Measured scan of single mutants.
Amino acid sequence: RYTFRTRGPEQMKRVVEWARRQNLSYRVEVHGDEYIIHAE
């Protein structure tokens, strides 16, 4: 189980790509310009 905090969509997309390659399920929360990605 991982939690990532990123700023801006570019970093968020990179984390999502990584999670997909690992076959993890993930969800993204948006708080202003901060993205929180939960993957497991």
Rank of each mutant, 00 (worst) to 15 (best):
G8F: 15
R27G: 03
E10H: 06
I37A: 00
M12F: 09
R20Q: 13
A39H: 03
W18N: 01
H38E: 10
V28S: 00
R21N: 11
Q22Y: 11
E10R: 07
E10Q: 08
M12D: 00
Q22L: 14
E29Y: 10
T3S: 06
V15T: 03
V28K: 00
T3L: 10
D33W: 05
E40D: 09
E10I: 09
H38N: 05
D33L: 10
R27V: 13
V30A: 08
R1I: 12
W18L: 02
W18K: 00
W18Y: 03
P9K: 14
R20F: 06
E40K: 08
E10V: 08
L24P: 01
R21L: 12
K13I: 10
R1W: 12
Y35A: 05
G32A: 05
V15W: 10
V30D: 04
R27W: 15
F4L: 04
Q22S: 08
A19W: 02
Q11W: 06
R1H: 14
L24N: 00
V30K: 14
R1Y: 12
W18Q: 01
G8M: 13
E40Y: 15
E10S: 08
A39F: 15
S25F: 12
R1M: 09
V16P: 00
I36F: 06
H31G: 03
T6H: 01
Q11I: 11
G32V: 04
R1C: 15
I37G: 00
V30I: 12
L24I: 06
E17F: 05
M12P: 00
E17H: 05
R20L: 11
R7T: 11
R5L: 08
W18M: 02
Y35I: 07
V16H: 01
L24G: 01
R7F: 11
R27H: 11
P9F: 15
V16W: 02
R14I: 13
E34K: 05
R5E: 04
G8H: 15
E34G: 10
E40F: 15
Q22I: 07
M12W: 05
K13G: 07
Y35K: 02
Y2K: 04
A39L: 15
F4C: 15
V16R: 02
S25G: 06
E10L: 09
I36V: 12
V28N: 00
R7P: 04
R7V: 10
A19F: 11
Y2F: 12
E40A: 11
E10T: 08
R7S: 10
E10G: 06
T6C: 15
W18S: 01
F4G: 01
H31V: 14
H38V: 14
Y26I: 14
E29K: 04
I37N: 00
V16I: 13
Y26P: 03
V30P: 05
Y2I: 10
E40V: 12
N23K: 10
G32K: 05
E40M: 12
E10W: 06
H31C: 15
A19R: 00
N23S: 08
V30T: 08
T6A: 14
W18E: 02
E40S: 12
E34W: 15
E40N: 09
V30W: 07
D33M: 07
E29L: 07
V16F: 04
R21Q: 12
E29F: 10
P9G: 08
R27Y: 14
I36N: 01
A39Q: 02
Y2T: 04
Y35L: 04
S25C: 13
Y2M: 08
Q22H: 15
P9W: 15
A39I: 15
H38W: 13
G32T: 03
W18D: 01
I37T: 00
V30M: 11
E10A: 11
A39S: 03
I36W: 10
A19L: 15
S25M: 11
T3A: 04
D33P: 05
I37S: 00
N23H: 12
Q22A: 09
R7M: 08
V15Y: 08
Y2S: 03
R21V: 08
E29S: 06
Y2H: 08
E40W: 15
R1A: 08
N23A: 06
R21T: 12
I37L: 04
F4S: 01
T6G: 06
V15L: 10
R21D: 10
V16D: 02
T3N: 03
V15Q: 01
Y26S: 02
T6F: 08
V28G: 00
F4A: 01
K13Y: 10
E17Y: 05
M12N: 01
K13S: 08
E17G: 04
A19H: 02
G32P: 03
E17V: 04
E29V: 09
T3E: 08
A19E: 01
E34C: 15
M12S: 02
E40L: 09
R7I: 09
T6M: 07
R21M: 12
V28Q: 01
H31K: 11
V15A: 05
P9V: 15
A19M: 12
F4W: 12
H38S: 08
D33N: 10
H31F: 12
I36M: 04
G8R: 14
R1S: 12
R1F: 10
K13E: 11
D33G: 09
T6K: 02
R5S: 05
H31E: 14
S25R: 12
R1V: 12
V15F: 13
Q22K: 11
Q22E: 09
Y2D: 02
H38Q: 06
Q11G: 12
V16C: 11
W18G: 01
G8W: 14
A39T: 14
H31R: 13
R27A: 06
E29A: 05
N23Y: 05
Y35E: 00
E17T: 04
A19G: 00
P9N: 08
V28W: 04
R1K: 13
E17N: 09
P9S: 11
K13N: 09
R1G: 12
R20E: 13
E40Q: 12
T6Y: 03
E34N: 07
E29H: 06
Q11S: 10
G32N: 06
H31W: 11
R14E: 08
Y35F: 11
V15H: 03
T3R: 07
H31A: 10
S25E: 11
R21K: 12
G32C: 04
M12L: 11
Y2A: 03
E29M: 07
I36S: 01
M12Q: 02
T6D: 00
V28M: 04
R20W: 06
T3W: 08
E17K: 06
V16T: 06
T6Q: 02
V30F: 09
A39K: 01
G32H: 04
L24S: 00
G8N: 15
K13F: 09
Y2E: 02
V15C: 14
P9A: 13
I36R: 03
T3Y: 10
Q22F: 12
Y35R: 03
G32S: 04
F4H: 02
S25T: 11
L24C: 05
T3H: 11
E29P: 01
G32Y: 04
R20N: 08
Q11N: 12
M12I: 06
G8A: 13
P9Q: 13
I36Y: 05
R5N: 05
Y2R: 05
E34L: 14
E40R: 08
H38G: 01
A19T: 03
V28P: 01
Y26D: 01
R5A: 05
T6W: 03
P9Y: 15
G8Y: 15
Y35T: 04
Q11D: 09
R27T: 14
W18R: 00
Y26M: 04
Q11R: 07
R1N: 07
R20A: 09
W18T: 01
T3Q: 08
T3I: 14
S25P: 05
R20Y: 05
T6L: 10
R1T: 10
R5I: 14
K13V: 06
E17D: 12
R7Q: 09
P9M: 14
R14D: 05
E10Y: 07
V15K: 02
N23W: 04
R21I: 09
M12A: 10
R5M: 07
W18I: 02
F4I: 11
G8P: 00
T3K: 07
Y26V: 14
E10M: 06
Q22V: 06
H38I: 15
K13H: 11
R5H: 13
N23G: 15
V16S: 01
E29D: 05
